[in-house]
């Protein structure tokens, strides 16, 4: 309640989760997640592997269907439409429309290998939004400049380093002008000396006020850039708060055990 800047905007939260559950067959991966991501916030998710943090991230843009609870993005339910008391599943096309506003960056980059960096970036704006090729190219060039890769527009992903690929992937997500960006361990597959460049781009993005949810192992980044942090373990939120508080003074035993291993 101390952050007046966030209170100035009495809008609904960007992401709101209440009792979100997800299971694969018999295995329950998410056992009731409650959290709230405010607009313009950098929200960090940490936790051991298998804790469900990546799964939760994928639920937000409906790459995974939730089995229970309530999940909304920018005030609208994810994957469903509510009419009276009934929920109606959204058609594939309607889900696709909602995904346009949510950018996602993957651990393994997932650039399209048969397209150049430029083609990767303009693909969705041209194919999905029907933007003209010339306009899309112009914006893509600006985005490439922003991530420091203006000279790599004609390169194929196989000709780029991991760090460069990830920065192209960020530019590709930004080309859809999203209101929310999801980062799924964006630096985990990178050589240590390449991590910095990617984090710099993310830092700039945060400074410009982008709402970001970041699943990460980079505690330094979380401490420096994060506005909120959640520690997940075994499919539940164990502890949440401001990154500096949670990381320096964890209240929970499991948080302490985890942090002692990674810090």
């Amino acid at each position: 309640m101390t952050e007046l800047t966030k209170q100035d905007r009495p809008e609904h939260p960007m992401v709101k989760a209440e009792g979100v559950r997800k299971s694969y067959g018999q295995v329950e991966v998410l056992k009731g997640i409650d959290l709230e991501v405010k607009q313009g916030e950098v929200f960090c998710l940490i936790g051991p592997s298998g804790s469900g943090k990546s799964t939760f991230l994928r639920c937000i843009n409906h790459l995974e269907k939730i089995n229970g609870g309530f999940l909304s993005v920018d005030g609208e339910l994810v994957g469903y439409r509510q009419k009276g008391d009934r929920l109606y599943e959204l058609k594939d096309r309607e889900v696709a429309v909602k995904r346009q506003d949510i950018g996602m960056v993957f651990q393994r980059f997932n650039l399209f290998p048969h397209m150049t960096a430029m083609q990767n970036i303009i693909e969705a704006p041209v194919q999905v939004k029907g933007e003209s090729r010339a306009d899309a190219r112009q914006r893509a060039m600006a985005l490439l400049e922003r991530v420091g890769l203006a000279d790599k527009a004609a390169s194929y992903p196989s000709q780029l380093s991991g760090g460069q690929q990830q920065r192209v992937a960020i530019a590709r997500a930004l080309a859809m002008k999203p209101k929310l960006m999801l980062f799924d361990e964006p630096t985990s597959a990178l050589d240590p000396e390449l991590v910095g460049d990617v984090l710099d781009v993310m830092r700039d993005l945060a400074r410009e006020g982008m709402t970001m949810i970041v699943v990460t192992h980079e505690m330094g980044f979380a401490r420096e850039v994060g506005d909120a942090l959640v520690f997940m373990d075994g499919g539940v939120v164990v502890e949440s708060g401001h990154p500096r508080e949670v990381l320096t003074n964890p209240q929970h035993e499991r948080t302490r055990a985890f942090l002692s291993k990674v810090l």
Binding site: N61, D92, V97, K98, F106, F112, E123, V128, R172
Partner: peptide, 25 residues
């Protein structure tokens, strides 16, 4: 599989994903 996922995450439909991303590869 990450290719189709990335394409879906960008808001591309199943058909566009098949035509532009999966089949060319």
């Amino acid at each position: 599989e990450g290719q189709a996922e990335a394409s879906h995450a960008l808001g591309m439909s199943r058909f566009t994903t098949m035509r532009r991303i999966v089949l060319p590869q």
